[in-house]
Design a binder for these strands. Structure first.
Lengths: 179, 179
DNA sequence: GTAGAGGCTGTACGTTCGTACAGGACGGTG
DNA sequence: CACCGTCCTGTACGAACGTACAGCCTCTAC
């Protein structure tokens, strides 16, 4: 065994494996042992690099941060939907982390990264729903959000641009037809 | 304590609590202890009535069975989408069980109810996607399925008919605009 | 009144999870 | 060579899960 790279290399391999597994099974359903065996290590080795487990999700989500603030700089409306589609497709490998897993994970203490993610998610919803949404608008908003998440998660094997185009058309059709 | 009803009564109360909790947190994230404390019993009491845990999900899904076969009797197309919306809204409390939880649960042995649910789910997908779907069609199909599931799960507090109308409009807009 | 089934509790077991800790192999620096 | 920080392993712990089992209470049937 050449033990080729140093620690930074295995750190990166762990992140890569975790990203794939989290996208496929979700955060809670993926154990440290699963990630470890995917990289050829023990679970304690994974825990050594990422401690606690949350840190894995945190570091995976971090690169999307600047795209998030850029996205929130857009007020709303059709342009917002378009950019939201781009964002979701670009970060599709971690979209499940953002949309589903974090909020269900052992309820985040205030100030934690999980709290920020939840705030982001709520903000996205508010931008789409608008102020004081009536029941119809609420349904339509969740329809759009569900469409975005589900479609990127289930088509991870397709080229990014292919998914983006189809999804954009669908999202705009949904947006333009809302009551 | 009058110990009012007999066993059938508590059985029903357990089912009701489980349905609510499964809809809210999902199957895997809901423990027998959670259900038990919601009904005011111990987890062994719940296990006594429903054994193993799968049986809870099985009995909750069972009432939807005839609606499922009725739904699959429809060939496809716009009518199928309409009836699918009705089905999803009517059984929204257990739609998460059908769409998400069952397939992830400890991989079902052949012949088990979980296997049937997966087959149903796949069949729905095939009806919507059609034979040999291209990438665009695949994306559009998951978009529709995601829209259906997400919107009913997140609007459980709204009247059934309200959700149905809004969701139907959205689903048809999605369907009619597919490539 | 006595036997027995049904309903439920308490306890315990095995597994899996994330985590903690001690120790060993390795490589660079004094 | 000796030292030390980095990287990783082995082992172990507590918690939570579904499950198994023995016992008790209550109501019904005979």
């Amino acid at each position: 065994m050449t033990t080729s790279g140093n620690g930074d290399d295995t750190r990166e391999r762990i992140l890569q494996a975790a990203r794939a597994l989290f996208a496929e099974r979700g955060y809670a359903a993926t154990s440290l042992a699963d990630i470890a065996s995917a990289v050829g290590l023990t679970k304690t080795a994974v825990a050594y690099h990422f401690h606690p487990k949350d840190r894995l999700a945190t570091e995976l989500i971090a690169p999307a941060a600047e795209d998030i603030v850029a996205l929130l700089a857009i007020g709303g409306g059709r342009v917002f939907v378009t950019e939201l589609v781009t964002f979701v497709v670009r970060h599709r490998a971690i979209i499940r982390l953002i949309m589903d897993d974090i909020r269900h994970a052992d309820s985040a203490p205030p100030g934690s990264p999980g709290e920020a993610i939840r705030a982001f998610r709520d903000e996205i919803y508010n931008r789409l729903a608008g102020p004081d949404p009536d029941p119809a608008r609420r349904v339509r908003t969740w329809t759009l959000l569900g469409a975005l998440q589900y479609s990127v998660v289930e088509t991870a094997d397709l080229p990014e641009e292919t998914v983006r185009k189809s999804l954009l058309a669908a999202a705009l059709a949904l947006w333009d037809s809302r009551g």
